[in-house]
Amino acid sequence: MYQEIILDHYRHPVGRLILEPFDAEVHHVNPTCGDEITLRVKIDDGVVTAIGHQGQGCSISQASTSVMTELLEGRTVQQALEVEAGFLALMQSRGEGQPDEDLLEDAVAFSGVSKYPARVKCALLGWMAFKDAALQAVAQSVKDQS
């Protein structure tokens, strides 16, 4: 479960900062363990230009959020949500999933986590926060334009 890439991202997380400026901010918690994340996202012309996150959590949640940040920055919101859907499906596979390396890149390192049901929520904490923030930012920009 603890692939070297996970431990690397845990020790040196990408995007662990207070992002300014930003278009949406969300705060998510994992009520079973108390882990929390505050995540901000910047979206320009439908492209995720920056993700910043703060909070506390285990190596799995921290590393997963870090890998996600690296993977999704620079993508369109639509592409990012496709990657998110792929990661969610992998996490829900109970160790049976065939990860799509072209889509998920480094995030395939988390395949092993899906065998531990208690840890799946850890791996998903940052991703769910991103999805929430991205959709809020998009909704806000639609509102601003109308």
Binding site: C33, G34, Q56, G57, C58, S59, I60, Y116, R119
Partner: peptide, 21 residues
């Protein structure tokens, strides 16, 4: 080391403890 990670390594060695709040 976050408590979850402590618990995971302990579990791999057969030591079952509680982690969390």
């Amino acid at each position: 080391i976050h408590a979850h990670d402590v618990g995971q390594v302990l579990d791999d060695r057969g030591v079952e403890v509680r982690v969390g709040h």
